[in-house]
């Protein structure tokens, strides 16, 4: 049985005009994202994976094609609807965490919580990422891995239906990276949301339900992983 579709991209493409040069960052692409799956988008730099993530996250608009989220078109939405979409439906995890330096760990999470009507309790989420004891620390007092876990907590507190992670382990060492992946893997296991990870690290593909491989601005292939492995068992 195929799970219901959460998001679908239909003939979506993105062209940037840089001076007098047109750069086709994403060629015409069609992709469905299923509810509750863990999707890993793999590709080297310049393959179009980040462009794809930006379009799905509603922080960029496609040059052509249509994007639907839960059946509603995103492409014709205005500025306000897009903000609401990001606010209510999407959680974002950045490669460099992008925490607010002036807010403590708990306050960074609370900042996101204040955006939605029914957020999860801040402490509960912090406990989930294993940082309850560091809740009053500022980003500058946390290690990279801890900062990234706060960033994940900040995304999760809104209870988003879609969690987008851009190279979440890119700035982390091996062990710390795996702890972060474990968190993302658990979200999928608990069925508490759809997780999309964009990375150039092919090893991470092993934990996914599906792997989308990108090359030169288009999808090269999509593989279904019958037996995803927990992050502890992967290696890079």
């Amino acid at each position: 049985m195929t799970p219901p579709i959460l998001m679908s991209l239909k003939n979506v493409s993105k062209t940037y005009i840089m001076g007098e040069v047109k750069v086709e960052a994403l060629k015409t692409t069609t992709l469905d994202v299923y509810e509750g799956e863990l999707l890993v988008i793999l590709g080297p730099s310049g393959s179009g994976k980040s462009t794809l993530l930006n379009l799905m996250g509603g922080i960029d608009q496609p040059s052509a094609g249509e994007i639907f989220f839960a059946g509603k078109p995103l492409t014709s939405a205005g500025e306000k609807e897009m903000t609401n979409y990001r606010r209510r439906e999407v959680g974002f995890v950045f490669q460099f965490y992008n925490l607010i330096p002036d807010l403590t760990a708990a306050e960074n999470v609370a900042l996101a919580a204040e955006l939605v009507h029914k957020p999860r309790p801040v402490n509960e989420v912090l406990e989930e990422v294993g940082l309850l004891d560091r809740r009053d620390h500022f980003p500058s007092q946390l290690s990279g891995g801890e900062q990234q876990r706060v960033a994940i907590a900040r995304a999760l507190v809104k209870q988003p239906r879609l969690l987008l992670c851009d190279e979440p382990t890119g700035a982390l060492d091996f062990e710390t990276g795996k702890r972060v992946l474990r968190l993302l893997y658990d979200i999928r296991q608990k069925g508490s949301g759809t997780v999309i990870i964009v990375t150039h690290n092919t090893a991470i593909g092993a934990i996914a339900d599906r792997v989308v491989r990108m090359r030169s601005g288009s999808i090269a292939d999509i593989t279904i992983n019958q037996n995803p492995v927990p992050p502890e068992r992967i290696d890079w």
């Binding site: 903000t83 606010r87 999407v90 974002f92 992008n98």
Partner: peptide
């Protein structure tokens, strides 16, 4: 600027 851009992504309106 970067901080504010992240907040925009998080869902803060202009």
């Amino acid at each position: 600027q970067r901080e504010l851009a992240s907040l925009r992504v998080l869902g803060f309106s202009r």
